[in-house]
């Protein structure tokens, strides 16, 4: 049982980590103006991506969009367009930090934190289960399976407890 639970935990961890790579960055497949316009921050100060700039008439958006269109028309691959924009406007033009160097902290830390938390939760749960399963004199063994009748009884008990003791 312990081994199976251990495998399940590992599987969960793997699934969680791979979540990062399973949802690929739009940049990898961006090819149209509309898609690329979501990859760069408008430099007018609105702090939003080009596609979402809230200014109805925005000089910066017009200029950047025209440059994007020009480079797309020239057949430049998205990666080279990105490099050109970074050279021209600096790294802050990218809507998300490139996945390298110090920026990896932002990309990986949330998952690392969740994994560390999951490990901690697992250890605590094991400890609590050990404490909970200590045999108590005179205590009846808890039911290991529920039939419909016990379910109905449990439901009634829970609803009654709520009525008497408040939310639970």
């Amino acid at each position: 049982m312990t081994t199976i639970t251990g495998y399940r935990t590992i599987l969960c961890i793997v699934l969680l980590v791979t979540g990062l790579t399973l949802f690929p960055a739009a940049a990898a497949r961006a090819a149209t103006l509309s898609e690329l316009a979501k990859e760069f921050i408008c430099q007018c100060g609105c702090t939003l991506v080009l596609d979402s700039c809230t200014h109805a008439e925005c000089h910066s958006k017009t200029q950047m969009t025209a440059l994007l269109q020009q480079k797309i028309d020239e057949g430049l691959p998205p990666a080279e367009i990105t490099a050109l924009f970074v050279r021209q406007y600096g790294e802050q033009v990218l809507a998300s930090p490139p996945k390298k160097g110090f920026n990896l902290t932002a990309w990986l830390l949330p998952f690392a934190a969740i994994l560390a938390g999951a490990a901690l939760v697992y250890v605590m749960l094991r400890k609590w289960v050990r404490q909970g399963n200590r045999p108590q004199p005179g205590a009846a063994a808890p039911p290991t399976a529920e039939t419909d009748d016990p379910y109905a009884r449990r439901l009634e008990r829970e609803l009654r407890d709520f009525g008497e003791k408040g939310f639970r």
Binding site: L16, G19, L20, L22, F23, A25, A26, A27, K38, E39, I41, T47, L48, V49, G90, E91, Q92, V93, L94, A95, S96, P97, G101, F102, N103, T105, A106, W107, P110, F111, I114
Partner: peptide, 27 residues
């Protein structure tokens, strides 16, 4: 992260929708 990056690397960066969508979707 833009503040953290500027403090650590001295480089201004932006963190926008592509980052949040990718990181948060699986969670």
């Amino acid at each position: 992260f833009p503040i953290i990056s500027e403090a650590v690397r001295g480089v201004k960066i932006s963190v926008g929708p592509p980052f949040f969508n990718q990181v948060n979707t699986p969670i």
